[in-house]
Design a protein around this nucleic acid. Sequence first.
DNA 1: ACTATTTCGGATAAATTTATCAGAATTAGA
DNA 2: TCTAATTCTGATAAATTTATCCGAAATAGT
Lengths: 144, 144
Amino acid sequence: MFSKACEYGIKACVYIAMQSAEGQRVSLQDIAKYTDSPVAFTAKILHQLSKNEILESLRGPKGGFIITPEKNETIKLADIVKAIDGDSIYMGCALGFGQCDATQPCPMHERFVQIRTDLKNMLENTTLNELATEFKVGTTFLRR
Amino acid sequence: MFSKACEYGIKACVYIAMQSAEGQRVSLQDIAKYTDSPVAFTAKILHQLSKNEILESLRGPKGGFIITPEKNETIKLADIVKAIDGDSIYMGCALGFGQCDATQPCPMHERFVQIRTDLKNMLENTTLNELATEFKVGTTFLRR
DNA sequence: ACTATTTCGGATAAATTTATCAGAATTAGA
DNA sequence: TCTAATTCTGATAAATTTATCCGAAATAGT
């Protein structure tokens, strides 16, 4: 469904958001450790999320990553997915056609459109803060 | 969402099923042409679908592929997807965890489970015959 | 039996995704 | 200003997916 990069990105954001809400800036090492993700690859993804203004980075000692309280409230899952995988997951055609709509539908279009829309709504209505709060409370997990 | 291989596989099945319903056996060349797919790669996928007993192949002159009337009625989209991509698309965890359920959920689990189930139901309730019939009537398209 | 046609099957190549490595740039603190 | 810590950046490698090529095997028709 989502790429590995996107999976790592979402996990990282949840962890950073949770720590940021506690006033803690977190390092790449910590993020990789607590999300069970490859360090160097995670660095790339974090950089990408930083360029997309989803999180903020700081170099040097005591450096690391934070997600501001404001971003924590406004960033949606869709923003993270879009920054890494693009929006084709919940916008594109099931059979990969560039153009596929009711006037020129692929064989799956009609049956697929509802699922795609539900996925889109879910991603666009879920804030990072919700996920971070649930994770902090301990009802969800970022690694096994 | 689905792999390229799976997209090609679904398109090929719809085309073969439609032609089979007309009593026509179709060649690899025809399938590739009318689904706008790479020939040699499509051959691999058809072979795989053949091994999974979704379609039947015959070598030699006048050879090609058919989907029997019985299979046409019983084969579901889920069977094709499963034969090529496996079932992780509509069974797996959004964040890639091997185990992810209500007792040990990832941050997306709760919100994702309904979408996954809807996708699963759609794939398991759509027969190849339905898609082939719609395609034959001309309400859906396999290429642009 | 011979030939032409077609799928089968293995080898290989190209493209993309995933992952690692090492040095440059930046920053906090002494 | 020096040092250590940390992210940034580009190069590269490994793995997977996508795609091509070609000879082998099978089959229909002559």
